[in-house]
Structure formats: C-alpha cells, structure tokens
Amino acid sequence: MNDEREIALGGGGPGCRKRDPIVVARKVTRSFGGINAVDVDYLEVPRHKITALIGPNGAGKTTLFNLLTGFDTPDSGEWEYDGSPLAKVAAYKVARMGMVRTFQLTKVMGKLTVMENMRLGATNQPGESLAKALFKGIWGAREKEVTAQAEVLLAKFKLDTMRDEYAASLSGGQRKLLEMARALMVRPRLVMLDEPMAGVNPALTQSLLDHIKNLKAEGMTVLFVEHDMHMVRHIADWVVVMAEGRIVAEGPPSTVMKDQAVIDAYLGAHHDVDLGDSTGFERLEEELAHDDESVVGTAGEGLIGHTITELHGAGEPGPATVHAEEKKP
C-alpha cells in the first residue's frame, strides 16, 4: 500500500498539477463583508493520499471546506470531484457522491445513542424513505446489515462499550472518534476532516492519527484541516498551506516545513503559534516510527470487511476506552 511515486507532476509549488487528482478547484473565491476569506486560484487534491490543509487561524481553511462540500456558496469559481462538477450541488448530494466531511466543532447527536448515531450514517436505507418507513419488514434486513457494519467500526474505534450510551455522555475525544466513525458509515471515497485533533487529549491524538492512516490504507483519500503543522508531519503525504485565503505553498511535508512562505505565513500572521512543542512530539514521533504496522486490512477489502480482526499499534487506549475489550469475531 505504499505508493512511492511522485504526487506532483513536474515539481511542487502553489497550484501545481498532480498525477491523479480527485478534487480540482479553480478560482474559488468567497468574501465576507469585503474580506476575502477564500481566494484559491488552483488546487488539486491527490487521490489515495493524505493531504493536510494547514494554515494559521483565519486562513480560510474551514471556509474552503464549506465551499468544497456545498455547505457554503462561493462568490465565483468551479470545482470538480472525480470528474463531476460540484458547483451549486447541494451538500447532501456531495456527501452521497462519496465526499464526506466532519466539522471543527464536533457534531454528534447527543440525544441519540452511539449506535443510532452510527446507523444514521449508513446509506441506501430503504427505511429512510417515508413510504417504506411504516413497514419494518421492508427495512429490517438492511437495518441488521447496518448494525453489523456499525459494530465493526465501533470496535475499531474502541467505542463498542459505549454502544447504547447517549452520545452526549461521551468525552470530547470520543465524540471526535464517533463523528469520524459515523462519516465512515457513508462509505466515502474522500474523507474531509476539519481539525480532527482539536480538543483531543494526547493519548487519543495518537490513535486518531492512526485511524487517519488506516483510512488511506483502506483506499480512501483524506483531506484534513490542521491548525498546527507539526501534527501533520508524520501522516500527511502532501501539505497545502493557506494564509489569508490563498494557497501560499504546497508540497511534501518535509519540503513545506522549510518553505520560507510558510514560515512567513505562520510567523507573519500568527506570532504566537507553537512551532514545536518538542517534548510531546518527539514522543509521538517515536511511537509513529513503526507505524507501518498500524495499517490493517487491504485496499480492496473495504470498511465492513469482516476479516478485519484488530488494530495493532493503535497506541495506548484513551482514558475512556480503558475498559474496551479486544473484539475478535
């Protein structure tokens, strides 16, 4: 699963072409009250890779996410996903096409149980149409499949013990996990995570990073927003840097970190940004050094693959999942 070929065609730099893009955006702009929140000239997101979108606060990362996924309407511009134009396509249709996002402020349904949250994510549910909803005979079978799929995912994310709890009782990090797991119920091809690490305690951060790597291993493309560029160093294949609505740099993480434009963007716009909380990250780096093992399953198997047995190297379980039992179906 390690595709080592070059991601970019003919060198990096802002707006460079990729060998196999899944998302292509051209001249996407959005302004709020005269301020250009997003002004992206050209952007390609490489397929089957983990791309990190980083930049200081207010750089327009979340707004770009909103625009790409149909949650906000740009002032101008066009973009396509897997060859189909997406401008003016409703958000829910974008999601159905396999481009599924999460939110910066975690959106789990606190008054539904964890399992109901998961079931909500599943697609092709006959019971979700009004005419068929009255008759359990019609949707009961699919409901069982959905539940089985959800159980596999919950086990993977170590949320299986919380199955019947109301999601409101989960910790912040568990909610992030649940939101990501629920997004996977849609069986996306492109997963867009908005600050998946925000507000998550360090122990869970590491398992979250692992989960993100697993997504790639299972054949998905990942685009995630991160505020802190050091978090992304080890999992991103490609890094796109935004500042003041524009893309100021992109390239492999090692190159981008040295890029003067990036340093300017961070230091210029955001003097207090923590460029390296060295102790915390060194530990994380060590643990991630052998992360090849954390990739489980194969690309063709898909998410529900019942041959998936367990996760290795997911690090120490988070405080709330201490009692989680290893599931070995």
Binding site: F71, A91, K93, A95, R101, T102, K107, L120, M185
Partner: peptide, 12 residues
C-alpha cells in the same frame, strides 16, 4: 439536533 451534520451524511 444538528441538520448540518445530517446533511454531511448525505441525507436530503
């Protein structure tokens, strides 16, 4: 609870 979350899951 949150219509945007539901929208993000592909529901109309």
């Amino acid at each position: 609870e949150d219509e945007n979350a539901v929208r993000a899951l592909g529901k109309n």
